[in-house]
Amino acid sequence: MEIKQTALAGTLESSDIQIMLSKGTDGIKINLDSEVKKQFGAEINAVITSVLQKFEITNANVKAVDKGALDCVIKARTIAAVQRALGTTDKPAWEVL
């Protein structure tokens, strides 16, 4: 799937993650800011990547600012960002969850 427009989901509040998804040309590129990047950076990136793969997105730039989000939150925020970026928010992709 091709990203149509940049999209933002999530907040910067504690236990949340803010995801900005935009067009990319060179695979999935994730720029992660997190205070626990050292401990959980690889896992956060893996959760984001797996959601993008389920939507068959192969090229994307992701800017993620993590404030201690759990995996389920990361997943939910990424799905919201993807559906906004694809312009498909009117058809929730339940099967991805």
Binding site: Q5, A7, L8, G10, T11, L12, E13, M20, K67
Partner: peptide, 21 residues
């Protein structure tokens, strides 16, 4: 940082709704 993060993220969300990223 609590209020700060809330305000900044709400401002960004408002701009995102206008297509500003």
């Amino acid at each position: 940082g609590t209020y700060f993060n809330t305000i900044v993220s709400e401002l960004m969300n408002q701009l995102a709704q206008q297509g500003v990223f």
